[in-house]
Design a protein around this nucleic acid. Sequence first.
DNA 1: ACGCGCTTGAGTTGCGTACCTCAACAAGAC
DNA 2: GTCTTGTTGAGGTACGCAACTCAAGCGCGT
Lengths: 343, 343
Amino acid sequence: MSKIKLHDVAREAGVSLATVDRVLNRRPGVRAKTIARVEAAVAKLNYQPDRFAARLARARNYNFCFVLPVGTNTFMGNLNDEIVTHSARMAGERVSLSIERTDVFEPERLAETLLSLAGRYDGIATVALDHPAVTAAIDAVIDAGTLVVTLISDAPQSRRAHFVGIDNVAAGRTAGTLLGRFSGLRMGKVGVIVGSLSLSDHIERHRGFAQIISQDFPGLALLPACESRDDFGQTEEIARRLIAETPDLVGIYNIGGGIRGVITALQATGRTRSVVFICHELTDFSRAALIDRTADAIINQDPGHEVRSATRVLQALSDGLPIVPDQERIRIDIFLKDNLPQG
Amino acid sequence: MSKIKLHDVAREAGVSLATVDRVLNRRPGVRAKTIARVEAAVAKLNYQPDRFAARLARARNYNFCFVLPVGTNTFMGNLNDEIVTHSARMAGERVSLSIERTDVFEPERLAETLLSLAGRYDGIATVALDHPAVTAAIDAVIDAGTLVVTLISDAPQSRRAHFVGIDNVAAGRTAGTLLGRFSGLRMGKVGVIVGSLSLSDHIERHRGFAQIISQDFPGLALLPACESRDDFGQTEEIARRLIAETPDLVGIYNIGGGIRGVITALQATGRTRSVVFICHELTDFSRAALIDRTADAIINQDPGHEVRSATRVLQALSDGLPIVPDQERIRIDIFLKDNLPQG
DNA sequence: ACGCGCTTGAGTTGCGTACCTCAACAAGAC
DNA sequence: GTCTTGTTGAGGTACGCAACTCAAGCGCGT
């Protein structure tokens, strides 16, 4: 019952260690028939290479790079912090993490940045865009032998190995159900503030939200979405206008950043309790708003989980190990004032 | 900028490899002053031992045991499956997982089982009970040199190294807020079905739920809790009675198992939409009920995450490595029909 | 001066795998 | 029959650390 090792596989298959090694590491120079014999032995003995010995022998360090947007978005700031923290932890694991910043909203700039990184890293985790230039750049990077996973925002047309993030349509639907049900049986209007109508994740959230409101809540009417460019000031202005011009305003759904703007507007107009407010991403601000009941629910994706997941996936791909889908699935977290993490 | 190794630490501290080894592995025979010198060097160079080399050299396998309740509870069944699945994955990591079943609800039986496991395993993850006999048994197991973490249900008075599970008071509060807000502005009664009033996690959920209903929802009145012993049939009977005898029944909160009973009762009486139903644990049944809208929300703790977390924690404790609190925090998941995992 | 215990250095071995070299042997081409 | 090419075996080295042995050095008391 002791551990099966390479040696046992060799004996079982009736070949030498060298041949087993050639088969397992896909080195050339082995007949198909011999390969089959070795693979049969592996299967029969249920051989699992010792990860520790393998990594030690390989004596290889992995360099991964996270590509994040420039700017001071709070969520991206948190993501950045998680990368730094995780990087320190991975020192003993032979993985080093870097961060590269670029204007992710400019397809050409992002594509350029990605191309400049090709070959310089073993793997890249990038906040992507669903745009032909970006898709082409990702595929080019992959062809150069660098692994690519997308983070937060996907480029589904590309050949990226994995997407680390949430289903934004489902997130929008979740927001819709929460807002609709939290509004009780009231009838009226619902305002939507979106960062940009050209960001696919924002569009998707909006689509999911609109679906639910129109299907499940006939008493609620969706106002046209307003663009805030994720800016604090603009968001506040939009929220104030919504509140002032809509007597029967039942709820506000803030799809992107600038959450503080809505909070400020709601508090200034004394509408914190009579307007259902739902937003995305747990930050110090949104958390405080949830606790003082200005916000009613926060839809969240856990940046810590995303960083760890991206790193694990890149590592697994590098080592040719399988991925645990369950562990890498990023949840659409719903936070109420009652289930906030820690104190 | 290449990796710092033991050798570098030895040179920096002006001692030999053997001495550094003695210090790092807490072997005796080193003067306090020398220990300090070595530790200073470790700190200065930020030395991080290579986990892979260390594990390889230690040439040690870890045997961990999960102690689960007997019986056919669906959630515990899922937990069991996750352990089996994870066990297969850990074969290459030198960790083997076993499962031991006992009557967790009988303190004396559980204590006995735990004591019989002491010394036979490197670590134990047990579904515990907050009872003096269990607490004493856990402490005895720890004194015998076996690591202990509690799973799902804690024994807070014991010296267990870690608790893998959720804050059940917070989970109850979450259920309260969801039920209250989902009921709209209606007034009426709320039924609570609890598995057992002597299980601390059920009591805690009930306490949290009651807190929120009485504080935040003056229009709602809590009916006395009914015990179902987590049994399908009994749960159905209780639910049917609640529905029949309570004309103004607004919602039902099922704290433990037997969810199918409530579902059956709601569907048979045609009250699926007029009664807000909230329960715990995502299973095939509760998932189906959420999708067909018999259930309005499910509070969940992810059994896969719990198994992986318990294993990771036991491993980290065995290797003397730090724990990443963020990664090991089990979320109080809220599932609506819109944010269910996968398809 | 001697022995004792505590501390330290030097060195060896082994963990299981990856990766490499060299030699041997076979089948097929010419 | 010789040469080429493809296939296999044998064996070595390295990876960084844990764990161990043995001997030497030190100050101490007697």
